[in-house]
Design a protein around this nucleic acid. Structure first.
Length: 218
DNA sequence: CTCCTGCCAG
DNA sequence: CTGGCAGGAG
C-alpha cells in the first residue's frame, strides 16, 4: 500500500536523535508497558510520569496488583481521572493472575479480551513488549499518516481507518516495530502536532504530500 | 453504532 | 463556559 522505506528510515533516524527519555522506555516488562499505556490513554505524558512511578513502586508486579484491594488501587490513581481505567486494570490483573498463571498473553484475541485493552493498547503491548510486527495506531499516528499520504477523507470512516492502519503496518521495518511505533508516535506528539506542526524542521518535508499541497492543517 | 470520561483550547 | 478530543465499553 504505502510501503516507503525512506519514510520509515527517516522516522527512525529522527527518533534516534529526538526521542524523549520516559520511564517506560527503559523497560520491556509487559506489565510495566501495560500500566504505562493505560495511564497514557487520554492523559498527557507529563501528568502520567509521577503516577507511573508511584503505581509501580506500590504494585511492582501483576500479582501484587491483583492482590491489592480495589480501594488501594484507586487511591494511587487519585486525581489521574478516568477511574474506570484503574478498575479495568485491576480487574484484568486479577484475571491474568488467577486464570493465566500471571503471564500476560501474547496474542491479539487474548489481550483484547482483557478489560481496558482495546485495539490501540493491545497493539502497543504486542509491539513494544513482545516485539510483534503490529501497528499501534493512535491519534498521533493517524494524523502523521494522513498528512504524509494526504488522506483527505473523513478519518472516522471505517474504510479510511483501515487504510491508515494498512499504511502504518506497511511502514513497520522488520524486527523494529517497537522502535518504529514509538518513533512515529513521538513524531506526531512533538513535531507533527495537530496545530502548527513544525514543518520547517521536519525531516519528512520533501516527502509529505500535505506539505507539498500546503494543506497540513486539513 | 453511541456513549463515557475529564482535560484543555477556543 | 462550551465543545472537541481519544480510546474503550456496552
Amino acid at each position: 500500500m504505502g510501503h516507503n522505506p525512506e519514510i520509515t528510515r527517516r522516522i527512525l533516524d529522527w527518533y534516534g536523535h529526538n526521542q524523549r527519555d520516559l520511564p517506560w522506555r527503559h523497560t520491556r516488562n509487559p506489565y510495566n508497558i501495560w500500566v504505562s499505556e493505560i495511564m497514557l490513554q487520554q492523559t498527557r505524558v507529563d501528568t502520567v510520569i509521577p503516577y507511573y512511578r508511584r503505581f509501580l513502586s506500590r504494585f511492582p508486579t501483576i500479582e501484587s496488583l491483583a492482590r491489592a484491594p480495589l480501594q488501594d488501587v484507586l487511591k494511587v490513581w487519585e486525581n489521574l481521572g478516568y477511574y474506570s481505567r484503574a478498575r479495568h486494570l485491576h480487574d484484568a490483573a486479577k484475571r491474568v493472575t488467577s486464570l493465566m498463571g500471571g503471564v500476560i498473553p501474547k496474542t491479539w484475541p487474548e489481550l483484547l479480551a482483557l478489560p481496558g485493552i482495546g485495539p490501540y493498547t493491545g497493539a502497543a503491548i504486542l509491539s513494544i513488549a513482545f516485539d510483534q510486527q503490529v501497528a499501534a495506531v493512535d491519534a498521533n499516528v493517524r494524523r502523521v499518516i494522513c498528512r504524509i499520504f494526504a488522506v483527505m477523507e473523513r478519518i472516522d470512516l471505517p474504510g479510511v481507518q483501515k487504510r491508515i492502519h494498512g499504511i502504518a503496518t506497511a511502514l513497520i521495518p522488520p524486527k523494529e516495530a517497537a522502535r518504529f511505533n514509538q518513533g512515529i508516535m513521538d513524531f506526531g506528539a512533538t513535531l507533527c502536532t495537530p496545530q502548527n506542526p513544525a514543518c520547517v524542521s521536519c525531516p519528512l518535508q520533501d516527502l509529505c504530500l500535505a506539505f507539498k499541497r500546503g494543506c497540513q492543517s486539513d
